[in-house]
């Protein structure tokens, strides 16, 4: 565990906490893409199947359980408890266009053609594009609440910090995983436009509003 990895995980955890608190405190999930949250639930379910087969560390087990549980909790809040506030008119991204190509790619490019490994690879590919419905929703409405922007910034930073972790591990431990690295790069690049707006607008106290 190096500092980049730890900061990445904490950033990821922070993003989830921000999102849950935002929904819970405002009793509303307006501006949040349920499609992205469904994708994240699929991502964590398929990635952490090794919870039942392999023990890594208490930290690892704890975080995996938290990520799986909170992803389902978020989906529950959006589609059941606060369903009336869900922005379904704007959340129209077709997630099958992400799920199926990611799965096909996982069947073709993986480290080992076994069920668990293909599902892990699928989760990595799917995570890299899972934020697209959320970014699509923001671009459709043309704006995002500050709290939603903070959520997106923390969530985007997490894989960016993992990139630094992988660079560190490549040199320090001679360890690398090309599938994770390339997908992580794609994931981080997708946030770049948002990062720019976040730094130039939200951090200066302005609302994130896209140019008309």
């Amino acid at each position: 565990m190096n500092i980049f990895r730890l900061l990445g995980d904490l950033s990821h955890l922070l993003a989830i906490i921000i999102l849950l608190l935002k929904i819970w405190n405002t009793r509303s999930c307006a501006g949040i893409s349920g499609k992205s949250q469904i994708l994240f639930a699929i991502v964590y379910t398929t990635r952490y199947l090794d919870l039942i087969t392999t023990y890594i560390s208490a930290y690892n087990t704890f975080m995996k359980i938290i990520f799986i549980a909170t992803s389902y909790a978020t989906v529950f809040l959006m589609y059941v408890k606060f369903k009336a506030t869900y922005d379904h008119n704007h959340d129209t991204f077709r997630i099958e266009f992400l799920i199926l190509p990611a799965f096909t790619l996982a069947l073709l490019i993986n480290h080992e053609f076994t069920l668990v490994e293909v599902l892990w690879t699928w989760s990595i590919y799917l995570e890299s594009v899972a934020i697209l419905p959320q970014l699509f929703l923001v671009s459709k409405t043309g704006e995002a609440e500050s709290i939603t922007s903070h959520y997106l910034f923390a969530l985007g930073s997490y894989r960016g910090l993992y990139l630094l972790n992988w660079e560190y591990r490549y040199y320090a431990e001679d360890h690398y995983d090309l599938i994770a690295i390339v997908a992580g790069l794609v994931q981080t690049v997708l946030y770049c436009d948002f990062f720019y707006l976040y730094i130039t607008k939200v951090l200066k106290g302005k609302k994130l509003q896209l140019p008309a």
């Binding site: 990895r5 090794d50 392999t54 890594i56 480290h111 892990w120 995983d177």
Partner: peptide
């Protein structure tokens, strides 16, 4: 070194 399993990252 490329480890397929186990995965130690999240």
């Amino acid at each position: 070194k490329l480890d397929v399993q186990p995965k130690d990252e999240l």
